[in-house]
Amino acid sequence: MITVIKNGEVYAPKYLGKKDVVIAGGVIEGIYDAIDVPENFGNIKVIEAKGKMVLPGFIDSHVHILGGGGEGSFKTRTPEIQLSEILSGGITTVVGCLGTDGVCRDMNSLFAKSRALEEEGITTYIYTGAYDIPVKTITENCKTDVILIDKVIGVGEIALSDHRSTQPTFEQFANVVALARVGGMLSGKAGVVNVHIGDGKRRLEYLHRLVEETEIPIKQVIPTHINRSIKVFEAGVVFAKLGGIVDLTTSSDPDFLEEDEVKASTGLKMLLERGIPVEQISFSSDGQGSMPIFNEKREFTGLGVGSVKSLYREVKDAVLKDGVNFEDAIKVITSNVADNLKLFNKGKIQEGRDGDIVIIDNESLDIQYVLAKGREMVSQGQVIVKGIFEK
């Protein structure tokens, strides 16, 4: 199948103007000023994108694809994610991870779930390990996981500054990062360590020590949840000013933020105003993690599930409510993530890269079409490809 996306305003994420994008064999064949497609000419599908913007497929680098939660006992474990949930958020690539529970959910199951989602039509990767140090892996250690297992691109999410972490020493943490880095070097992968930052008073202390006391580059670690509180956010600003990458979590309820929590869209604006280059900023959803639900009186009423659809919601809010430049906003879920994780075929509309495309309405910015590796998965706002067990 050859697909031609015609007359769209292409953001690659750099704005290219009105272009036609041709996808063949699941890969972007070229980007043209205008091409003529003869009627009834072979196996060619044309998507008319006039009045729409054409974007790279979104990358969510932190999703509990097996489900998350469980901190309130077994009944609070969240379910596995379904394909349609991912696609409806414009996401064509996910990185799966474990969280607090690395016992009842393990790396074998995470690997199998990532394979299942890939067979259903999207691209998947995983981090090895969970909150714990020592890291629970598939092979003998996290370095060999990164080297030998195609899906494994790094380690995480390792919990620091959190009462749920295993309270590792700095030396134990630095050793994990060193193993991940060498594993990445030997396999051509990023080998990054995704670091869950909690509310503890140490905040990003270990990450600063890593920079000061070792030879490991600062971008080998990516702290996430830095918008969980203003104190953690400010620590993230300091880290970013040293050259580090910071990741903001999107899946909180925007109507009932915790008292000092920073909304992801607002956090993006604040970071840019502080002079942090946009290339050092990313969003991830923490999708399928458990999320508290509050009523209008801010009273806790139960648990919900963090949504991967929040990833693009916060990008829209950054543009429509916080006045962030559109190109900058899109980068935090496309090219920045691809660059940080060395996903060389993802994150940009460029000849030779995978045909992962999201088409949105020019005015509302609502998602109209999603293509994953050239296959149309969402059409006119409706998911048309679902997982095998979805109705």
Results as ranks from 00 to 15, higher is better:
I2T: 11
T3H: 10
G8V: 00
Y11F: 05
P13Y: 02
K14V: 11
Y15M: 12
K19T: 00
G26P: 01
I28A: 02
Y32W: 11
D33Y: 12
P38R: 15
P38V: 14
N40A: 02
K45M: 09
V46M: 13
I47Y: 07
I47M: 06
G51L: 09
M53L: 10
L55V: 08
G57V: 08
H62F: 07
V63R: 08
V63Y: 07
H64P: 03
E80I: 13
I81T: 03
T92W: 02
C97Y: 08
R105A: 04
S109A: 09
L110G: 04
F111A: 10
F111T: 08
E119Q: 11
T124A: 02
G129Q: 12
A130K: 14
D132A: 15
D132F: 14
K136G: 05
C142I: 02
T144Y: 14
I147Q: 13
G156P: 06
S161P: 09
S161Y: 09
T169E: 01
Q172G: 00
L179I: 09
L179F: 01
V182K: 08
G183Q: 05
S187E: 11
G191E: 02
G191Q: 11
G191N: 08
G198H: 13
G200R: 13
G200K: 15
L204Y: 03
E205T: 00
L210V: 00
E212C: 00
E213D: 07
I216H: 02
I218G: 02
N227R: 04
N227Q: 10
E234R: 12
E234Y: 04
F239E: 15
L242M: 05
I245Y: 14
V246M: 13
T250S: 04
S251H: 13
S252V: 11
P254H: 09
F256H: 15
L257G: 03
L257C: 11
D260P: 01
S265R: 12
K269M: 05
K269H: 03
P277T: 15
S282A: 11
S284C: 10
S285C: 04
G287Q: 06
G289E: 05
M291N: 10
I293H: 03
R298Q: 07
V305P: 10
S307Y: 01
K309S: 12
V315P: 00
A318V: 05
V319N: 05
L320Y: 14
A329D: 00
K331N: 01
V332S: 14
V332Q: 13
S335P: 15
N336F: 03
V337K: 14
N340P: 13
N345C: 12
I349K: 05
R353T: 04
D361L: 03
S364G: 06
R375C: 07
E376A: 09
G381C: 00
V383N: 09
I384F: 03
I384R: 12
V385D: 02
I388G: 05
E390N: 12
